[in-house]
Amino acid sequence: MTTPANQAGPSLRTLASDWSSDKDTFKEVPWGKTMMWIFLLSDTFIFSCFLIAYMTVRMTTTEPWPLSSEVFALTIAGHHIPLLLIAIMTFILITSSGTMALAVNFGYRRDKNKTAVLMLITALLGASFVGMQAFEWSKLIIEEGVRPWGNPMGAPQFGSVFFMITGFHGLHVSIGVIYLLTVAVKVWKGDYQRKGNYEIVEITGLYWHFVDLVWVFIFAFFYLW
């Protein structure tokens, strides 16, 4: 009779020998996809360092931290609505993850036109996110007087962290938009149809979902805390 304890041994060993067997460790995973996963892991560390640095300076700074729900409020038709713009931006970005997932799905089905259109929509949503971010930045800079080195509401680190982290994320989104457009055009032209291989769409999707996921963390830590 085998007890659960000594069952764990062989199954762990099977896992190890599957992973270490010849040719490739992750079976049937193309090179590009493996590399994207590893890159994203590395990028995760970059964003984590940024966020941890942000939390640290928020705790060390001697001046009070500005109230983010107040700073990021919009006044529309006389109503003061906190976090409105950010809510819309977050919604847009998450929607774009949905359209991306659909694009990947149609890529699997070799539906060239639908894949290309959905990627285009994803890129447009991404571009509008960047556009809104530009609007948000200019509002903060021009109307609220926030600068990287200081602001009228309190701790100077507020502006520093805000511009640095959202800027770095916005850069990722912008690069993603260019990436999406490039791949979409190639899909449209039928490059992958001929090769019978749409895996690049999935790889682009990985990147895009990652950028969205990072935004969720930035949103939670920066705007909601």
Partner: peptide
């Protein structure tokens, strides 16, 4: 990293 993980030849296991 990708080369070591995914591009080994026939019979070349990690160990």
């Amino acid at each position: 990293v990708t080369t070591v993980l995914q591009a080994r030849t026939h019979g070349m296991s990690l160990f």
